[in-house]
Protein backbone atom coordinates (compact mmCIF):
# COMPACT_ATOMS: atom_id res chain seq x y z
CA UNK A 1 0.00 0.00 0.00
CA UNK A 2 2.66 2.51 1.08
CA UNK A 3 6.25 1.55 0.49
CA UNK A 4 9.28 3.30 1.93
CA UNK A 5 12.44 2.61 -0.05
CA UNK A 6 15.68 3.60 1.64
CA UNK A 7 14.07 6.73 3.09
CA UNK A 8 16.27 9.20 4.91
CA UNK A 9 14.80 12.20 6.66
CA UNK A 10 16.41 14.71 8.98
CA UNK A 11 15.80 18.13 10.41
CA UNK A 12 18.35 20.80 11.10
CA UNK A 13 17.77 22.52 14.39
CA UNK A 14 20.25 25.18 15.44
CA UNK A 15 23.10 23.52 13.65
CA UNK A 16 22.50 20.05 15.04
CA UNK A 17 21.04 17.39 12.82
CA UNK A 18 18.05 15.42 14.04
CA UNK A 19 17.53 12.18 12.15
CA UNK A 20 13.92 11.01 11.94
CA UNK A 21 14.19 8.11 9.53
CA UNK A 22 17.65 6.65 8.98
CA UNK A 23 17.63 4.89 5.60
CA UNK A 24 14.46 3.00 6.35
CA UNK A 25 12.89 0.49 3.98
CA UNK A 26 9.47 -0.60 5.09
CA UNK A 27 6.10 -1.50 3.68
CA UNK A 28 2.68 -0.68 5.10
CA UNK A 29 0.58 -3.51 3.67
CA UNK A 30 -3.00 -3.29 2.52
CA UNK A 31 -5.52 -5.01 4.74
CA UNK A 32 -3.70 -4.10 7.96
CA UNK A 33 -4.11 -1.09 10.20
CA UNK A 34 -1.04 0.35 11.84
CA UNK A 35 -0.53 2.35 14.99
CA UNK A 36 2.67 4.38 15.09
CA UNK A 37 4.11 4.93 18.56
CA UNK A 38 7.04 7.01 19.60
CA UNK A 39 8.16 9.38 22.32
CA UNK A 40 7.57 13.11 21.81
CA UNK A 41 9.84 14.50 19.14
CA UNK A 42 10.62 11.14 17.56
CA UNK A 43 9.09 12.38 14.31
CA UNK A 44 5.70 10.67 14.18
CA UNK A 45 3.88 13.61 12.61
CA UNK A 46 6.67 14.15 10.11
CA UNK A 47 6.49 10.48 9.20
CA UNK A 48 2.74 10.80 8.71
CA UNK A 49 3.19 13.79 6.42
CA UNK A 50 5.76 11.87 4.41
CA UNK A 51 3.39 8.91 4.11
CA UNK A 52 0.74 11.29 2.83
CA UNK A 53 3.17 13.00 0.48
CA UNK A 54 2.88 16.50 1.88
CA UNK A 55 6.50 16.42 2.92
CA UNK A 56 9.35 14.87 0.99
CA UNK A 57 12.19 12.74 2.35
CA UNK A 58 15.76 14.01 1.99
CA UNK A 59 16.60 10.89 0.04
CA UNK A 60 14.92 7.66 -0.90
CA UNK A 61 11.48 7.09 -2.29
CA UNK A 62 7.97 6.64 -0.93
CA UNK A 63 5.50 5.00 -3.28
CA UNK A 64 1.77 4.79 -2.75
CA UNK A 65 -0.39 2.31 -4.59
CA UNK A 66 -3.61 3.28 -2.83
CA UNK A 67 -5.67 6.41 -2.39
CA UNK A 68 -4.13 7.86 0.75
CA UNK A 69 -5.84 10.62 2.71
CA UNK A 70 -4.15 13.75 3.94
CA UNK A 71 -3.08 13.45 7.59
CA UNK A 72 -6.39 14.00 9.39
CA UNK A 73 -6.27 16.10 12.46
CA UNK A 74 -5.15 19.26 10.71
CA UNK A 75 -7.84 21.55 9.43
CA UNK A 76 -5.36 23.73 7.56
CA UNK A 77 -6.01 23.75 3.84
CA UNK A 78 -9.52 25.04 4.31
CA UNK A 79 -9.87 28.65 3.28
CA UNK A 80 -11.02 30.93 6.12
CA UNK A 81 -12.93 33.27 3.81
CA UNK A 82 -14.84 30.53 2.00
CA UNK A 83 -17.93 28.95 3.49
CA UNK A 84 -17.96 25.40 4.75
CA UNK A 85 -19.89 24.39 1.67
CA UNK A 86 -17.40 25.96 -0.73
CA UNK A 87 -14.49 24.35 1.10
CA UNK A 88 -16.12 20.94 0.90
CA UNK A 89 -16.94 21.41 -2.78
CA UNK A 90 -13.36 22.39 -3.47
CA UNK A 91 -11.87 19.35 -1.79
CA UNK A 92 -14.41 17.05 -3.43
CA UNK A 93 -13.43 18.51 -6.80
CA UNK A 94 -9.70 18.03 -6.38
CA UNK A 95 -10.33 14.42 -5.42
CA UNK A 96 -12.64 13.93 -8.38
CA UNK A 97 -15.77 13.26 -6.34
CA UNK A 98 -19.25 14.62 -6.74
CA UNK A 99 -19.29 17.95 -4.82
CA UNK A 100 -23.02 17.74 -4.17
CA UNK A 101 -22.82 14.30 -2.61
CA UNK A 102 -19.85 15.35 -0.50
CA UNK A 103 -21.71 18.40 0.83
CA UNK A 104 -24.73 16.26 1.71
CA UNK A 105 -22.53 13.82 3.56
CA UNK A 106 -20.71 16.52 5.52
CA UNK A 107 -23.94 18.35 6.38
CA UNK A 108 -25.30 15.13 7.77
CA UNK A 109 -22.12 14.06 9.52
CA UNK A 110 -20.72 17.28 10.98
CA UNK A 111 -24.07 18.58 12.22
CA UNK A 112 -23.18 22.23 11.87
CA UNK A 113 -26.59 23.19 10.47
CA UNK A 114 -26.87 26.57 8.78
CA UNK A 115 -23.20 27.29 9.52
CA UNK A 116 -22.34 25.33 6.38
CA UNK A 117 -22.99 28.58 4.48
CA UNK A 118 -20.96 30.80 6.80
CA UNK A 119 -17.28 31.61 6.26
CA UNK A 120 -15.03 28.96 7.76
CA UNK A 121 -13.22 31.48 9.98
CA UNK A 122 -16.43 32.10 11.97
CA UNK A 123 -16.56 28.47 13.10
CA UNK A 124 -15.88 27.48 16.68
CA UNK A 125 -12.95 25.10 17.04
CA UNK A 126 -15.35 22.21 17.61
CA UNK A 127 -17.31 22.96 14.46
CA UNK A 128 -14.12 23.41 12.46
CA UNK A 129 -12.87 20.02 13.59
CA UNK A 130 -16.19 18.35 12.87
CA UNK A 131 -16.28 19.86 9.40
CA UNK A 132 -12.70 18.83 8.67
CA UNK A 133 -13.35 15.34 9.93
CA UNK A 134 -16.62 14.97 8.06
CA UNK A 135 -14.88 16.20 4.95
CA UNK A 136 -12.21 13.54 5.13
CA UNK A 137 -14.94 10.93 5.64
CA UNK A 138 -16.85 12.14 2.58
CA UNK A 139 -14.05 11.05 0.27
CA UNK A 140 -13.43 7.38 -0.37
CA UNK A 141 -9.86 6.82 0.70
CA UNK A 142 -8.31 3.40 0.79
CA UNK A 143 -6.00 4.43 3.57
CA UNK A 144 -6.67 7.02 6.25
CA UNK A 145 -3.76 8.75 7.96
CA UNK A 146 -4.87 9.89 11.38
CA UNK A 147 -2.75 12.13 13.55
CA UNK A 148 -4.22 12.41 17.06
CA UNK A 149 -7.72 13.16 15.96
CA UNK A 150 -9.79 10.96 18.19
CA UNK A 151 -10.37 13.73 20.69
CA UNK A 152 -12.67 15.60 18.33
CA UNK A 153 -15.94 16.89 19.70
CA UNK A 154 -18.12 15.56 22.47
CA UNK A 155 -18.72 11.93 23.41
CA UNK A 156 -21.63 11.61 20.99
CA UNK A 157 -19.58 12.83 18.04
CA UNK A 158 -16.71 10.53 19.02
CA UNK A 159 -19.12 7.61 19.00
CA UNK A 160 -20.23 8.57 15.50
CA UNK A 161 -16.62 8.79 14.30
CA UNK A 162 -15.96 5.38 15.74
CA UNK A 163 -19.06 3.98 14.07
CA UNK A 164 -18.13 5.53 10.72
CA UNK A 165 -14.61 4.12 10.93
CA UNK A 166 -15.93 0.70 11.84
CA UNK A 167 -18.06 0.77 8.69
CA UNK A 168 -15.04 1.68 6.58
CA UNK A 169 -12.77 -1.00 7.92
CA UNK A 170 -14.14 -3.41 5.30
CA UNK A 171 -12.39 -1.59 2.46
CA UNK A 172 -10.16 1.05 4.06
CA UNK A 173 -7.07 0.82 6.23
CA UNK A 174 -5.81 3.15 8.90
CA UNK A 175 -2.37 4.35 9.85
CA UNK A 176 -2.59 6.36 13.05
CA UNK A 177 -0.52 8.23 15.58
CA UNK A 178 -1.96 8.52 19.04
CA UNK A 179 -0.85 8.93 22.59
CA UNK A 180 -3.90 7.00 23.70
CA UNK A 181 -3.00 3.33 23.95
CA UNK A 182 -6.64 2.48 24.18
CA UNK A 183 -7.33 4.08 20.80
CA UNK A 184 -4.40 2.28 19.21
CA UNK A 185 -5.61 -1.03 20.62
CA UNK A 186 -9.15 -0.56 19.34
CA UNK A 187 -8.23 0.55 15.81
CA UNK A 188 -4.95 -1.09 14.92
CA UNK A 189 -3.85 -4.61 14.18
CA UNK A 190 -0.13 -3.81 14.04
CA UNK A 191 2.08 -1.65 16.20
CA UNK A 192 5.09 0.24 14.86
CA UNK A 193 7.48 1.97 17.20
CA UNK A 194 9.53 4.84 15.80
CA UNK A 195 12.73 5.30 17.77
CA UNK A 196 16.23 6.53 16.87
CA UNK A 197 15.36 6.73 13.19
CA UNK A 198 14.22 3.14 12.91
CA UNK A 199 10.74 1.62 12.56
CA UNK A 200 10.19 -1.49 14.69
CA UNK A 201 7.16 -3.51 13.68
CA UNK A 202 5.23 -5.73 16.09
CA UNK A 203 2.48 -8.08 15.02
CA UNK A 204 0.89 -7.65 18.44
CA UNK A 205 -0.01 -4.12 19.38
CA UNK A 206 0.59 -4.93 23.06
CA UNK A 207 4.26 -5.70 22.39
CA UNK A 208 4.66 -2.35 20.67
CA UNK A 209 3.02 -0.61 23.61
CA UNK A 210 5.38 -2.39 25.98
CA UNK A 211 8.45 -1.12 24.10
CA UNK A 212 6.93 2.34 23.91
CA UNK A 213 6.33 2.37 27.65
CA UNK A 214 9.95 1.34 28.24
CA UNK A 215 11.22 4.09 25.94
CA UNK A 216 9.12 6.61 27.79
CA UNK A 217 10.74 5.83 31.13
Amino acid sequence: MIKLIDVHKYYKTRGSKKVILDNVSYEFRAGLSYGILGINGAGKSTTMRMLGGTELPNSGRISRSARVSWPLGFSAGLHPAMTGRENVQFVARIYGQDPKRAVEFVEDFAEIGAYIDEPYRTYSSGMAQRLAFGLSMSIDFECYLIDEVTAVGDARFQARCHEEFARRRAHSDIIMVSHSMETIRSYCSRGVVLAHGVLHEFSHVDDAIELYTKLNQ
Binding site: G53, S63, R64, S65, A66, R67, V68, H79, M82, E86, F90, R93, I94, G96, E142
Partner: peptide, 22 residues
Amino acid sequence: IGFPENLGIAQRGRVIFAIMMR
Protein backbone atom coordinates in the same frame (compact mmCIF):
# COMPACT_ATOMS: atom_id res chain seq x y z
CA ILE B 1 -5.40 4.18 -8.30
CA GLY B 2 -1.93 5.56 -8.84
CA PHE B 3 -0.33 7.77 -6.25
CA PRO B 4 -1.17 11.44 -6.56
CA GLU B 5 1.94 12.54 -8.39
CA ASN B 6 1.09 10.19 -11.25
CA LEU B 7 -2.62 10.78 -11.66
CA GLY B 8 -3.93 11.10 -15.17
CA ILE B 9 -4.28 14.26 -17.19
CA ALA B 10 -8.02 14.45 -16.51
CA GLN B 11 -7.45 14.41 -12.76
CA ARG B 12 -4.66 16.99 -13.04
CA GLY B 13 -7.06 19.15 -15.02
CA ARG B 14 -9.70 18.81 -12.32
CA VAL B 15 -7.25 19.81 -9.61
CA ILE B 16 -6.03 22.81 -11.60
CA PHE B 17 -9.56 23.92 -12.43
CA ALA B 18 -10.67 23.63 -8.80
CA ILE B 19 -7.68 25.72 -7.67
CA MET B 20 -8.49 28.34 -10.32
CA MET B 21 -12.08 28.63 -9.10
CA ARG B 22 -10.91 28.88 -5.51
